[in-house]
């Protein structure tokens, strides 16, 4: 018995192997499935739901759903596209994302997803929550205004750095990322070189004093949309 089999994504047959998720199989075949909480070096979490696809007629998060022989997957599909757009928009209105002056602009995965999905304005009212900045650490800043609760830092700190610096507290609308110290980040053993610091997709966890070093035009998503590296560099973005 072979571990390799075929699945079909948007009408295209691709090879998958046992143990691969739909997202991984698609990526290996050069098909980009948008995602935010997923990170290739971290254990899948399935919480942001942006990678939702329709597999064999049912919606699922492709970063956690294992590929199965003869699976039919819809990725570029109007219904799926609409879900993603709404999810991205909700992330924008739930936080305080001021792209024009944010130092992550041009390199932010949330912003880049917004552009990729044609989202330049929100239909829902912004909530403008009051959130704090933890700037107590000498090298690292956490701006909770921009946190999208993707949990990358939580998983990276626990599973890669072995530190458990970041963790989720509270539930529902009160849910937020906290640090394992009652005296904020300065009293944790977080370090600038930690995986947890580097994996933040937005401008929530930032190395201090390095903002705006990349000029406009030289930032990660200035010329090509997010996902281009997966798709083989064929995409282009009107700037």
């Amino acid at each position: 018995m072979t571990d390799s089999f075929t699945i079909n994504v948007d009408g295209r047959d691709i090879q998958a192997t046992k143990g691969q998720t739909i997202l991984e199989a698609a990526e290996a075949a050069g098909i980009y499935i948008p995602r935010l909480c997923h990170h290739p070096e971290l254990k899948p979490h399935g919480s942001c739901r942006i990678c939702t696809v329709i597999a064999n007629g049912r919606s699922c998060t492709s970063c956690t759903q294992p590929a199965e022989p003869d699976m039919e997957v819809q990725n570029n599909h109007p219904q799926v596209e609409m879900w993603r757009k709404q999810l991205i928009e909700m992330l924008f209105v739930e936080g305080n994302h001021f792209c024009p002056f944010c130092e992550k602009s041009g390199g932010c995965e949330l912003q880049a997803l917004g552009y990729r999905h044609g989202l330049t304005a929100t239909q829902h009212p912004h909530l403008f929550p009051r959130r704090e900045i933890d700037a107590t650490h000498p090298d690292i800043m956490v701006d909770h205004n921009r946190c999208v609760l993707c949990g990358r830092c939580v998983r990276a700190s626990r599973d890669v750095d072995g530190k458990r610096v970041f963790q989720f507290v509270e539930r529902g609308p009160e849910k937020r990322v906290a640090v394992n110290s009652d005296a904020k980040l300065s009293r944790t053993d977080v370090d600038l070189t930690d995986k947890a610091v580097g994996v933040c997709p937005v401008g929530a966890i930032l190395p201090k004093r390095q903002g705006y070093v990349a000029p406009v035009g030289a930032r990660e998503f200035d010329h090509t949309p997010i996902g281009t590296s997966v798709e083989g560099g064929n995409g282009s973005l009107e700037v």
């Binding site: 024009p100 390095q210 903002g211």
Partner: peptide
């Protein structure tokens, strides 16, 4: 006030 100093040259343009 309460923003990191390196943001200021960008913010003040508003």
């Amino acid at each position: 006030q309460g923003r990191p100093f390196w943001e200021v040259p960008v913010i003040v343009q508003r």
